[in-house]
Amino acid sequence: MTDELPRDRKNASSASSFEHKKHVRPKQESGEREEWVWILDYLPYGKEDDLRPVYQKKPLIQSLGDNKFVLLELIPVEGKVPPVHIKTHIGPGEKEYVDRVKARIMYDELSRGAKLELPLVLADAVKAQEARFIKFYNDAQPVSMRQNSLELLPGIGKKLMLDILAETKKKPFDNFEDLKKRVPPLRDPEKHIIDRIIEEMKGGQKYYVFAAPPKMKRE
């Protein structure tokens, strides 16, 4: 079970779409299941470290979940080759490119191509869910006595954090452009989100803000 962090008493009753969770033991909870994924790489002969003869190898898809940013390995529909960087449905119903989910994987298990594609896909995913991430900036709360959730974002220190909080007190940000206009030192708010998501995918974090904690490493 994850422990919810203490919030500012004034905001204790306010609902937030972000739950800052301490990492105890990652598991696939119902809220972490993905209905949609972004294709990161198509591997016609499976993983590079698969030493079986070519005729025994099966194609694989490596993908990024659109909700909790879970990394998944998928079995493609026979005869279908999904384009990289598209978003496709993997939930119940008609199968477009994905036959089934094979396994949840770790960041280190991504192919070289998938790792290169990941920041580009995340840029589109974050932009598509702009309201979700603007809410994070608007609703930022302390995660400890000395740290605000904004400081979990790579590149955001105390001064920038205080500038953002000062502006939210005046009026919530409407979108990324509004945020950049009102806090000029924050030149690329999307990138701070993307960098944090990738950090969380790699594991070893005390708090998981956007991504589900990675699965336990196989022995």
Rank of each mutant, 00 (worst) to 15 (best):
L152F: 02
G79H: 10
N11Y: 12
R182L: 03
L153T: 09
D188P: 13
P26Y: 03
K171F: 02
V98L: 04
P53F: 10
E190W: 01
Y207K: 03
R100M: 14
N11V: 02
L64Y: 04
L74M: 11
E4C: 05
K21T: 07
V98P: 00
V70S: 05
I194M: 06
K102H: 01
Y97K: 07
A212Q: 08
L60E: 05
K68H: 07
A15C: 12
S16K: 08
E94N: 10
K180C: 04
R52Q: 13
F176G: 02
R25W: 15
Y107M: 06
K135W: 07
P44N: 07
A140G: 09
H23F: 11
D188W: 15
P92V: 05
L40N: 06
S16H: 06
G31V: 09
R112V: 13
L51Y: 11
P172S: 12
K27G: 12
Q129W: 05
E117G: 06
P119A: 08
G203N: 06
K68I: 02
I61P: 06
P154K: 04
N67V: 08
P213V: 07
L150G: 09
Q62G: 05
D178Y: 05
L152K: 00
H85G: 12
K10A: 10
D178N: 12
K80R: 15
K171C: 13
E48M: 15
Y97S: 08
K215T: 08
F136D: 02
V98N: 01
E4L: 14
F173Y: 05
K206Q: 12
I198T: 04
Y42C: 04
P184Q: 07
H20K: 10
S144K: 14
R52W: 09
H23G: 06
D99K: 12
E96R: 14
P44H: 14
I197Q: 01
I61R: 04
E151C: 07
K180F: 09
D99I: 00
M1F: 04
L179C: 01
V54I: 14
N11R: 13
R182Y: 08
D174E: 13
P185R: 13
I90W: 10
E4P: 09
V143E: 05
V209R: 00
G65F: 01
K87E: 09
